[in-house]
Design a binder for these strands. Structure first.
Length: 222
DNA sequence: CTAATGACGTGCATACAGCA
DNA sequence: TGCTGTATGCACGTCATTAG
């Protein structure tokens, strides 16, 4: 759950205090910033929890190579990939998806983005990292490898493409819905759960601001 | 002139190594 | 073993410079 009211920032909020000159406001902004970060990692966790996950990539590959695993769709998290022999100097993508059918084996390298607006300045380096990893793992496994960028909250591929300054072609772009469909998990359910958080965050934020305003008013009439 | 870009800065979370 | 510092990833921002 990514809720501002539950955020417990560890580092100090000096920057926001400099910005506002009010400790209560600064603390609230710090908690909000903390929650933005949490929300991103939370999304990865929500996906991993609902998908068919691999817990050991090396073991999985052995099972594939020895014919024990022949079919199915499997999700490999960054953490699991990092611990495997397929790790690439801490430059793992967010997810790997392995799709095995009777006709072939595919590995999708996924970079997941929360939100629909991007850090446009980093799109080219994101791209290079994906290509790098594709070449790396592609040379090690007998899968057809492909990289995809996924914008979880943007339904329009054209907008995603634009957001990344056309660094990716349309078939390298995935929406959150497509991503979830591949993994057979419920996109709407995840989106709705996050909307609940948003409602709570709105209420909490307004409530806190109101309370700050009230204390200021009271000081005035003292 | 405007849009894009690179370098840099601020804040926070998390994983992990190294230490006591 | 548990704690702490460090590296990394992510979101968002400024400023100066460059490309068109």
């Amino acid at each position: 759950m990514a809720k501002i009211r539950n955020a417990k920032p560890k580092s100090s909020s000096g920057g926001y205090f400099r910005l506002t000159g009010n400790k209560q406001v600064a603390d609230l902004l710090t908690k909000a910033q903390s929650t933005v970060i949490t929300n991103g990692t939370e999304l990865e966790k929500m996906i991993a929890k609902r998908a068919n996950c691999i817990t050991n990539l090396d073991e999985f590959m052995l099972n594939v190579n020895s014919g024990i695993i022949t079919e199915g769709t499997y999700l490999c998290t960054k953490k699991v990939a990092k611990k495997s022999s397929y790790s690439l100097y801490k430059k793992e993508p967010d997810f790997l998806i392995f799709i095995l059918t009777k006709t072939g084996k595919t590995c999708l390298i996924i970079e997941l983005k929360d939100g629909d607006a991007f850090d446009t300045k980093k799109s080219s380096s994101e791209y290079e990292s994906l290509v790098l990893y594709k070449n790396h793992i592609g040379s090690l496994i007998e899968f057809k490898t492909n990289y995809k960028i996924c914008a979880f909250n943007q339904l329009s591929k054209e907008k995603i493409k634009q957001g990344f300054k056309n660094e990716f072609t349309e078939d390298q772009i995935m929406t959150g819905k497509e991503f979830c469909d591949i993994l057979s998990i419920d996109y709407e359910e995840i989106v709705n759960k996050r909307k609940e958080d948003a409602e709570d965050n709105f209420e909490y934020f307004i409530q806190e601001m109101t309370s700050i305003i009230n204390t200021l008013e009271n000081k005035k009439t003292d």
